[in-house]
Design a protein around this nucleic acid. Sequence first.
DNA 1: TCTTGACTTAGAGCGCGCTCAAACTCGTAG
DNA 2: CTACGAGTTTGAGCGCGCTCTAAGTCAAGA
Lengths: 142, 142
Amino acid sequence: MKIGELARRSGLTAHTIRYYERIGLLPYADRDRSSRRDYDASILTWIEFLGRLKTTGMPIRDMLLYAELRDRGSGTEAERRALLERHRESVRAHVDELNACLLVLDTKIGGYAETEQRMKDYDATLPERRRKPVGARSTRTR
Amino acid sequence: MKIGELARRSGLTAHTIRYYERIGLLPYADRDRSSRRDYDASILTWIEFLGRLKTTGMPIRDMLLYAELRDRGSGTEAERRALLERHRESVRAHVDELNACLLVLDTKIGGYAETEQRMKDYDATLPERRRKPVGARSTRTR
DNA sequence: TCTTGACTTAGAGCGCGCTCAAACTCGTAG
DNA sequence: CTACGAGTTTGAGCGCGCTCTAAGTCAAGA
């Protein structure tokens, strides 16, 4: 698979794929005889996983650390696991924080809802003027 | 309250507070006769709210939009509410995404746990060599 | 043969959100 | 009186994660 297809299939741009390779987040890809990158479909699994780390806010430098451990292969499992576990905890903490913020947001939005309700209540006390357009006996009442 | 104290109480740095004022996220603060910012405690509420927006990933440009609506005062409530509701939805979506990633992370970590378990099982089949240090009859057994 | 377009490289540039530096002014304690 | 510490301004610089440019190579189709 060429870089263009990988881009399409991974959701990254070709630019980003090259950038990731440059910094070591993706392995140095095999090239065909005209120096073009030729990918195996298995790279998609790795990119997808990197995407999850990214989504969950892991900085690239930590992904790099993980990638390096992975490259070093067996004997690094405990360290990789520890890294992921630390990350998992930070994600959990962040989710909790977000949920707390959501509550505040709900309250705030509720406040605006009340304001709007008060406005409606107030509107409801207004004289006919505001209701005029609704008018009965209009020739356009269907 | 001077900027130093506000910094301490808000968790922002004085630099950041000035920066926020410069870009319009914080109102132009009253100055004392020697041009120093003098804050009312009420600013803390606003800073805290901005913090929640920030925590939940709202870009500064959107906070600015909200801040401007707020400055314009009444008549902008519906728009402010809509802005917060849109944001709330995006936060909820993000939380869902994070939770999905957490599941993947759990699986991945579980994979490492199994590897380690297999290693332990393997270790358990090893001859005494590995158990030696536990040895009874040691002179140092208290 | 010529053109097209997908690819290559090294390196510059960008948007974001700060963060800091330089040079200055004050008010107060010793 | 002087030294200190906390403040002021404008503007430059930084770390992150891309994103794009320029100039070139190559293979396949008209």
